[in-house]
Design a protein around this nucleic acid. Structure first.
Lengths: 164, 164
DNA sequence: GAAAGATTGTTGTTGACGACAACAATTGCC
DNA sequence: GGCAATTGTTGTCGTCAACAACAATCTTTC
């Protein structure tokens, strides 16, 4: 655009007299402080990033973990039931299960009772893998405790119990 | 509709007589209960949906609201500073500001001190609009109180204050 | 004072994710 | 038997985070 590029300017030191306020600490949030949604959002981002990192070696994301956990605790569920329970779109669950089935962690068994639906089960490797995932998830949960405090985490779980 | 699915009262029963466990209430979550991330995620989805619905008439989403709030409280900030403060990618902020600028709520002023950066300001309409947004956001916050309880919300804000 | 490196805004891509819509196969209902 | 509803699937669209590359500009360093 502006092809003229004579940059020989007298030194305008922006960092001398006028504070530039580029540091996050100095910037006020005004009304944002006191908004539950903002705090929850930031916390959720942090917690997911820690979960993803902690379970990075096994390459399991939070949603995948929740699917495996529910299937593990309730073998034979249909995709619709899992989707409803976890608040996932059934269209989305298709891809999630495709991935998990490809990794031999889950298998779709054609249901005898309802030939439209699939009964979801963990494979043998899925069971042992989930056990490992749970250990790593527990480690992640300890990170949360370390971040906000043990009793704060317990308090939080109690407050939000109605949403699980 | 996702998180707090309305209960289906009549127990569904397959033709063969075995309970089908399609209702969410009957499905256990096993290890998922006790995971802070899961509860926080579900709560965050609920809270954002209520925010979007409550500010639906003015068509303002949570992220847009946070950007407007920070600019309103700190006029003249650069895009980089806003992005850092809110934990948004600067690439993402470009589109957000494009939209807000198109709606005449925000203006990008070429900075004198640093010709690379833009000083962000609310327009006059932006100021009055933000005032209205804040009233609606306060209404949303009352919804949160009604959902989890007044002192629970306060407790939550205290616990998560470090993430803002 | 000029070269080298860092920063700012921008554009683009990728992938996870939610919301919808349409479809075939199957089931339930009347 | 016929018709509406359900289940899994495929596809599209839009939001959002994470990167990468780039031009313009600033800062640092020699």
């Amino acid at each position: 655009m502006t092809a003229t590029a004579p940059r020989t300017f007298p030194r305008k030191r922006a960092s001398n007299g006028t504070a530039r306020r580029t540091d996050a600490d100095e910037i006020g949030l005004d009304a944002l402080v006191g908004h539950a949604g903002y705090a929850v959002r930031r916390f959720q981002i942090w917690i997911f990033q820690d979960f993803i990192k902690t379970l990075g070696d096994v390459d399991i994301r939070p949603t995948q973990y929740s699917v495996l956990t529910v299937i593990g605790a309730n073998p034979g569920l249909s995709q619709m039931a899992v989707a409803k329970r976890l608040g996932i779109e059934r269209a989305r669950l298709v891809h999630l299960l495709d991935s998990l089935e490809q990794r031999k962690l889950v298998k779709r068994v054609k249901s005898k009772a309802d030939r439209r639906s699939h009964a979801l089960h963990l494979t043998i490797q899925g069971e042992t893998a989930l056990a490992k995932f749970k250990r790593l998830a527990a480690e992640h949960e300890r990170h949360v405790e370390a971040k906000i405090g043990k009793e704060n985490r317990a308090q939080l779980l109690k407050i939000l119990a109605g949403f699980t």
